[in-house]
Design a binder for these strands. Structure first.
Lengths: 192, 192
DNA sequence: TTCGTTTTGGGACATTTGTCCCTTTTTTCC
DNA sequence: GGAAAAAAGGGACAAATGTCCCAAAACGAA
């Protein structure tokens, strides 16, 4: 069955209604991208919501000529710039693929059609937003309540995949510290 | 008209349908609280979503015997612990009022009833979540991309009300820095 | 009001982090 | 495969932040 992983993610332990699955199968587009492709830029209005079937991506902004990543997405993640997609306003951030990737996507218009035609889909969208919110709050607490070293170790535990895909520079900026500090932490915590 | 500010916030530039307004007026409870009252504790399932008609509040956790605030709410803010309220799972955080406050609130069951009976209310809930998400991402970027001083100055600009309501200790913890550092920043940036 | 408690601001010093380098290693692209 | 470019790790020093204080100010309950 196509798009199996995505549907499982949307419906949780239940399944999607068959009509909805069929409809979505018609709407969903599968596209192949190469490493380092930029799929969203500031000023663009994102007209599709993505799901990463294979690969990974990073959301970032520029601060004084430097990329500051604020989000990483991995395989099986739903990737939606919530504000700019749902309000159809220009993005303020970039999204860049970290490796060759396969993305599923659905257009804004199709999402609207689904929301109108399938009332339960409102719950699915709400669930997606809650998950983002939960991760954001966790992230904020990591910044506010933990030392850089704790923050790093938590990221390492919760999301080890990142470390095989993003540069040390990016991870340091994501943690809000300098590359030097991240190097220090890594040599300090390396266990042989 | 009762609950005017809340309705304006929900509907944006349009108005709520009259039927919905009447229904909400029936459901909404107005309650008076004193300073420092704790209205949500870890372990509790929040059964109401709040709107601050008057007053302010702070969400926090404890880290090593110290309060770490992760969110401040002010007058005319919708105050909902998104994850624990909508999934009806135990909260992991505290919410404490910073001053004598008047809160409007609606129960989880009533929200469900509204969502079923008034399809457009799904948009209102989505809007609330988007606003939270937008603020969270802003917050994350403040941590990742700005120095403590910049972070402080932005907070000062965007939310000066906080400084009249929360302690220096709380604001420092909210910014992820020590009280000493916040004091240094303040004396450095004070302009006479 | 008054006394006890809490909060605030700042000094001294230790620790951590950042900046600026340079060298080595890894990656990228003909 | 090999040259050029990019990324990583770490040394030396400067800058910042944190911890532990204490005294002054503000607050709060009787």
């Amino acid at each position: 069955m196509e798009n199996k992983e995505l549907f499982r993610l949307l419906a949780g332990k239940n399944s999607l209604r068959l009509e909805l699955e069929l409809k979505l199968n018609d709407m969903i587009k599968r596209e192949y991208y190469t490493k380092s492709q930029i799929i969203l830029k500031p000023g663009q209005i994102p007209n599709r919501a993505w799901f990463i079937e294979k690969g990974s991506a990073m959301g970032f902004v520029f601060k004084e000529e430097k990329k500051v990543p604020f989000w990483f997405w991995n395989e099986n993640d739903i990737m939606v710039p919530l504000n700019s997609f749902f309000n159809q306003v220009p993005s303020e951030t970039y999204i860049e693929l970290l490796e060759p990737s396969i993305l599923l996507s659905i257009s804004f218009e199709d999402v609207q059609e689904i929301l109108l035609g399938f009332p339960e889909s409102n719950d699915y969208v709400r669930k997606i937003m809650q998950d983002y919110q939960k991760m954001s709050e966790k992230r904020i607490l990591e910044f506010a309540a933990y030392t850089p070293e704790e923050h790093y170790l938590h990221l390492m535990r919760d999301c080890p995949a990142i470390f095989r895909k993003a540069s040390v520079e990016s991870i340091a900026a994501y943690l809000g510290i300098s590359r030097k500090t991240l190097n220090r932490i890594r040599s300090r915590t390396r266990r042989f």
